[in-house]
Structures are given as C-alpha cells and as structure tokens.
Amino acid sequence: MTALICNAIRKTYGAVTALENIDLSVAPGEFIALLGPSGCGKSTLLNLIAGFEAPTSGALTVFGETPHRPGPDRAVVFQEPALFPWLRIWDNVTFSPRLAGKPRAAYEADARRFIDLVGLTGFERHYPDQLSGGMKQRVGLARCLLMQPRLFLMDEPFGALDAQTRLAMQELLLHVWDTMKRTVIFITHDIDEAIFLADTVYVMSARPGRIRSRFTIDLPRPRQIDMLADAGFNALKRDIMHQLRD
C-alpha cells in the first residue's frame, strides 16, 4: 500500500492560496524531501499530513486512511524542538506511551535503546533547558522513534542548528533511517541536506505553493559525508539549483 497519497490538495487562508494542486505519492520506506524557499507552503503541507490542519479541497490518505486529527501513527519532529520544559528528558521521550496508559515495562527497553541510539544516555534526568539545541532535537527524534510511527514528518528539524551540529544530526538521521527503514517526509530549504538525505526530492515554488519538479537521488546508501563533494552530488545540486532559481 502507498504510504502517502496527496491528490489535488489545495489550501487557502482567506484570499491567500498557500498550496495549489499538490499531487504526491510516497512509497513505504521512502525518504522524500520537500525542498523550497520560505513561503512555498511546505510546512503547510506537512501540517495537513500531520492532521494539524485540514485541506481546503483535495484528498489525502496515509496508508489508505484519511487522517482527520493528529495521531501517533504520524510522528512530527518540529523545527523548534517543542519539548515540555517541565518534564525530564526521560519523561519527554516516553510521553506518548505514557499517554496511552502503557505500563513502564512495555516501553522501557525501547526507550533506553532509542535514547542510546540518539546519543543521550546519561541525560535522562536532565531538563530540556539544560541541553543544547542539537541535543534537544535528538530528544525530539527519540520520542518520535519510540512512537513507532508509520510516517515520520520532519519540519526543517535542523534548520536552527549551526552547520557542524546540523551535519552530525544529518548523519545520525541517516544512521537511524538505515536501521528503521520508515517512510520520511522531510521539509528543508537546504539543497545539500535534501540530496544527502532523500531518495526523492520534490522542488516546490512559492505563491501559490506548487510542486515544480521531482528528482530521484540514486546515490548509493549508506551515505557518507564525503559524498557532499562528489561529482554526482554536484551535478544533482546544479540541476536543482536551476529549478529553484527559475
């Protein structure tokens, strides 16, 4: 079954058209990047998939079902970490299973594993405000992993980080994705990031937001940082840059 289908999605706010005629089809396990300038409606599209907002018209299905409200089958990593400052890291990560009323035994081992996977072992008793920006995003990632969602929605999760931290987080995400093979919708305005991470890059244009073109990234996996300077990588980058500029 297709992981995500968008069929002629349109979203307007009063007289402003944010998204127009969005068609998208994402296979299970596929990593797609939505690339575009700010104001192209890419975050709006993500909000529609997450169920935070409803499309004005058009159809949207996630594994065959139309989402009407947000739910733990679609995990969201936000641009600003959106952690609960009054909860310790452990309680932030395990928030979802605790909401569902699961006993600690049901999630404890997984929670430890994911906290370890994102490199936060030893920080369980810290509060979010004690962590750096990159570490907070790791918490945001770990809590989504623990939800075992069918869809990962990532809204420029590394956009606010410095270049070095961002690269480390991209590598971490690739590593996590290689082990999970879940479907990811990744929003970014960074061309390098889109190519480095995704199987497919969709380039969007602004006002109204539309999907302009689709690029298949056939760089081999697992991907390494060295690829960021490869000829193949640069050729793709050049093509995409032309698309973004016109």
């Binding site: 935070f52 409200r69 959106a82 928030f95 979802s96």
Partner: peptide
C-alpha cells in the same frame, strides 16, 4: 505555545 499542543496531540 501552539507547538506544545501540537506535539502532545501528535503523540496521541
């Protein structure tokens, strides 16, 4: 903050 409400609701 809207994002805290959204984060909680996407977690169910």
């Amino acid at each position: 903050r809207l994002n805290l409400v959204r984060a909680a609701s996407m977690m169910g």
